[in-house]
Amino acid sequence: MASYLVTGSSRGIGHELVRQLAAKPASEVSTIFATSRSVNAPLQELADQHPGRFVLVPIDVTDQDSIKKAVETVESVVGDNGLDVLINNAGSANPTRSDLNDTFNVNVTGPHVMIQAFLPLLRKGATKRILNISSSVGSIAKQPVYRELPAPSYKITKAALNMMTVLYSQELADEGFTVFCVSPGWLKTDAANAHADLPVGTGVEGVLGMVRSSGVEANGKFLNIHVPGWENNPGLNQYDGKELPWYGLMYGSSVY
């Protein structure tokens, strides 16, 4: 029985994460803290369907005051049991070059501040898992594959998020934490991504499966979801459940 906190839960991947978590039995998922800058109708509907177990918490990951207030709210619910799983999902994917600072604040500084703020509660939790939602386009090694995709600030910040994940995994390893990042795949989250590879439910199911099954052996790793039949897809993306080679440039068969 674990408690989860998910950022950016009002839409897309974040909303599907909290929806699937709420569908799990209480014996598996005790409390879901669904955080977002504002509450929309689908999020409120989930809260109404799962009173007491599904907790709406206002958070803007670029606003440290809102995060501080959120910690107080979560602590008032979990008490000495602490928080088991933190999923840093909130992100920005604006494809322009001029927004690098804003994108960095959401995609990198936001998760960093969230981890720092919730670490005392996570230390009290039984599971001690921190998952950062990343993307395969943040892999330096795979940039020859994704060269034509026009999202420089997104790529840069996801690469930085991967490095931040490794640093926290090293810092917290002796305390029994598992800190890792997962690429959920290119998902059909909205009309703009209607031609994406996978339904959002498929990607999120893969992510949550990794949260449940991954122990300390996943600490510091950048993982890909597994979707049967997509292991050797000839297109841009493959979903083989393995580590993504994020740290070097690929020349031929070598990684430098």
Rank of each mutant, 00 (worst) to 15 (best):
residue 12 G to C: 02
residue 28 E to M: 11
residue 250 M to N: 07
residue 118 F to A: 08
residue 199 P to H: 01
residue 243 E to T: 05
residue 133 I to N: 15
residue 108 V to F: 10
residue 179 V to I: 11
residue 166 V to I: 15
residue 122 L to Y: 06
residue 42 P to A: 03
residue 3 S to T: 14
residue 122 L to P: 00
residue 244 L to R: 02
residue 69 K to T: 15
residue 203 G to R: 00
residue 104 F to E: 14
residue 68 K to E: 15
residue 20 Q to W: 01
residue 110 G to F: 05
residue 21 L to G: 07
residue 146 Y to F: 08
residue 229 G to E: 04
residue 37 R to E: 14
residue 190 D to E: 08
residue 206 G to Q: 08
residue 118 F to P: 00
residue 94 N to E: 12
residue 175 E to M: 13
residue 17 L to E: 07
residue 141 A to H: 08
residue 51 P to H: 10
residue 115 I to L: 04
residue 4 Y to F: 13
residue 105 N to W: 07
residue 40 N to D: 13
residue 4 Y to E: 09
residue 49 Q to Y: 04
residue 32 I to W: 02
residue 161 L to R: 10
residue 28 E to W: 05
residue 81 N to H: 11
residue 96 T to Q: 11
residue 172 L to Q: 06
residue 88 N to L: 05
residue 134 S to H: 10
residue 184 P to G: 14
residue 150 P to C: 05
residue 21 L to N: 07
residue 51 P to W: 11
residue 106 V to N: 03
residue 193 N to L: 06
residue 90 A to S: 04
residue 79 G to K: 06
residue 215 G to R: 02
residue 44 Q to T: 03
residue 171 E to V: 05
residue 194 A to F: 01
residue 182 V to L: 12
residue 190 D to T: 06
residue 162 N to L: 14
residue 197 D to M: 01
residue 197 D to A: 06
residue 157 T to M: 03
residue 247 Y to G: 12
residue 86 L to N: 04
residue 209 G to W: 04
residue 179 V to H: 12
residue 176 G to S: 13
residue 144 P to G: 07
residue 63 D to N: 13
residue 208 L to D: 10
residue 22 A to T: 10
residue 80 D to P: 00
residue 29 V to D: 11
residue 112 H to T: 12
residue 21 L to Q: 06
residue 189 T to N: 05
residue 187 L to K: 05
residue 193 N to V: 02
residue 25 P to Y: 03
residue 225 I to G: 02
residue 35 T to Y: 07
residue 39 V to M: 07
residue 6 V to E: 13
residue 115 I to C: 06
residue 87 I to C: 04
residue 40 N to K: 04
residue 124 K to C: 06
residue 94 N to P: 10
